[in-house]
Amino acid sequence: MIKVAGRPESLQSKQFHYCPGCTHGIIHRLVAEVMDELGIREESIGVAPVGCSVLAYEYFNCDMHEAAHGRAPAVATGIKRVHPDKVVFTYQGDGDLASIGTAEIVHAAGRSEKITTIFVNNAIYGMTGGQMAPTTLIGQKATTSPYGRSVEAQGYPLKVSEMLATLTGAAYIARVSVHDPQHIRKAKAAIKKAFEYQIAGKGFTLVEVLSTCPTNWGLTPIEALKWLEENMLPYYPLGEYKTPEEVK
């Protein structure tokens, strides 16, 4: 008998706390499937962020280390420097990584820390109730941008993958999406590459995953997927921004 579905071993048998329609569950699963396929569950240490995925340490079935808001890349650096033979990853949202944690992510990439960052970008602060994020789109409404984000008042959303890809220390930078099955498969392939490059010692790796927040976007799960496709993809183009082949 061939098993065609089921829970990856790298996920705990625990119900997610995520809102209905949120894509964190899919992304957790992709990371876990990759860990299973690479056989690295017992060699991996994950760093959980502050934000919606703060409880990621309850879901991944490997050693997990909680971090303060934005500090996951620094915590991961500490772990990786002590255990250079282990696989170390951070799982961070856009408030965590692209706002309060910009210094940590930029310098982890600059130092070419051999870690993998899964960066979940849903253009909003979810856990705290829908405030404007550094990745909130122009015109997008949030509880702290009730009239819509304006260029005059709040400036432009950060394009993290493009920015980090300029750093020599970044080995693999890709932006993917999980709004339909085809893109989910591509997202998994990118996550797998990132882990493989880390294991091969290529340097810093990051996969930005465009994600939905039906609750705080005020949309149904289906509408949210469509909103992501129509609004986020044009501003945040998908693709590999840096691959190790470019690292001389």
Binding site: I45, V47, A67, A74, A76, T77, G78, I79, V82, E104
Partner: peptide
Amino acid sequence: NMVYGAAGSG
């Protein structure tokens, strides 16, 4: 926070 990670990993 690097200290936090290093201490946490033993």
